[in-house]
Computed example of a mutant assay.
Amino acid sequence: MNHSPLSRSARLSLLLVAVFVLGGVAVGATLHAAGRAARSQHPRAGGPAVASGTVRLDDPRRALFRSMAWGPHRDEITAVPADRPDGPRTASGVRCLRFHAAAGTGICLQAVHGTLRDTYRAVVLDHRLRPLRRYDLAGTPTRARVSPSGRTVAWTVFVSGDSYAGTAFSTRTSVVGSDGRGLDANLETYALTVDGHRVHAADINVWGVTFADDTRFYATAATGGKTYLVRGDRTTRTLKALHPNVECPSLSPDGTRLAYKKRVEGADPDAPWRLYVLDLRTLRESPAGEHRNVDDQAVWRDDHTLVYSLPGDFGADLWTVPADGSGTPRRLAGAALAPVFPR
């Protein structure tokens, strides 16, 4: 088949146009990627502004949390004005997956990135966030707490499974003095009683410690497909069931109530929990004003106010609601997790 000079010229023109278009796409993609990289270094690119600085665990003017904002300070323990949790953030340089602090003592559950796989450890911190002691963890971090005096710490990990929503998971909860003494590596070795009867079962799991003092605590124990609020005693090494269907309890500062997540009938099996408060004197429970699924161990900002995390654009946001069931939820701080408020 013969081609005229005009048709060859047209084909050449089309070829040049295609080259220019493809070249433009490549340049555009390169500039877009460069722009994304540049924005990731900008303090506001991944959420709230975060700056490096000095962070202490004993500063009464500051609240603390794990910052979830994208950028060089993601996962670092961060300080904000206690009365303005959404205010300017000062990052400590210490990264934690789970964190809690009280009376100048901190517990930080960290990932240790390896060549073949990640491992995890618990690090006890002093008031300047300097490591005092380290403990290898048997699984993925999920809960952490410090007693009000700062003399005892606890943590929970998933040994298998990665969610409380189903039944195919196993946890391990450990308690130890912040001075390194008296390690109870697995609270499942404590004597569990339910309805006055000692439970001997292979399926016992214990998680979500909240401290009353250095030796007494509350937690969740699960066995036989049911969960219970248990009162624990380190001296007698016992766990006593007090109330059913309680997970991840959190004791109020005055020691009279527990906030917790409760499975409710008719909820999505993957989002089964609502936030409740239990009066320890009467064992009467009442729902909080938050009607969304709460998969968190809430904290008390004061004797009247709960703070908890919900999924957000950067992984998690902090929300707050009154503990007495009144009011409506409001967002307290974006891109934040594991809050600690001064006492």
Rank of each mutant, 00 (worst) to 15 (best):
F341R: 02
A103M: 06
R84M: 08
K226C: 03
G28W: 15
A336Q: 08
V94L: 00
A79K: 02
R130I: 03
P131K: 10
D75E: 08
A33I: 15
L116K: 15
V194F: 06
A202G: 13
L192D: 07
T189V: 10
T140D: 04
P339E: 11
A49W: 08
S9W: 11
V176S: 01
L132F: 01
R95V: 02
L125F: 13
D268W: 06
P88Q: 13
S67P: 02
Q41T: 14
A18W: 12
P339F: 13
V299A: 10
V246K: 12
L192A: 07
L132G: 10
G255P: 00
T156S: 11
V112K: 02
V94W: 01
A29P: 00
A138H: 13
E76V: 10
N2D: 13
E76R: 04
I77K: 02
R95H: 02
A241I: 04
A111L: 04
L337Q: 12
G161W: 00
S7I: 07
A103H: 09
W207G: 04
V194L: 05
V299K: 09
R234D: 14
R172E: 09
H73V: 01
W300N: 13
Y120K: 00
D270F: 10
D303Y: 08
D126G: 11
Y164I: 02
T220N: 03
Y308V: 09
G53V: 05
T238Y: 02
V124W: 04
K226S: 10
V175Y: 03
I77Y: 06
Y218N: 06
A259Y: 02
T220H: 01
V94F: 01
P141D: 06
L239E: 11
L251S: 12
R198M: 03
V264C: 05
L258E: 08
P43G: 05
G166I: 03
H32F: 14
G327V: 08
D184I: 09
S7Y: 04
L116E: 15
A259I: 01
P244M: 08
T238Q: 09
T238P: 04
L16H: 10
N2I: 08
S149W: 01
A79H: 04
P131N: 12
C96F: 02
K261V: 01
D254Y: 04
V112F: 00
C96R: 02
F314A: 15
G28H: 13
L337C: 07
D195H: 07
V294R: 10
V94I: 02
H197F: 03
Y308M: 14
T328V: 15
L15I: 15
G87M: 04
C248V: 06
G114Q: 06
A37H: 07
W300F: 12
D324V: 06
W155R: 00
D83N: 14
S286R: 15
S40N: 14
A222L: 05
V299L: 11
P85T: 09
A34I: 10
V27P: 07
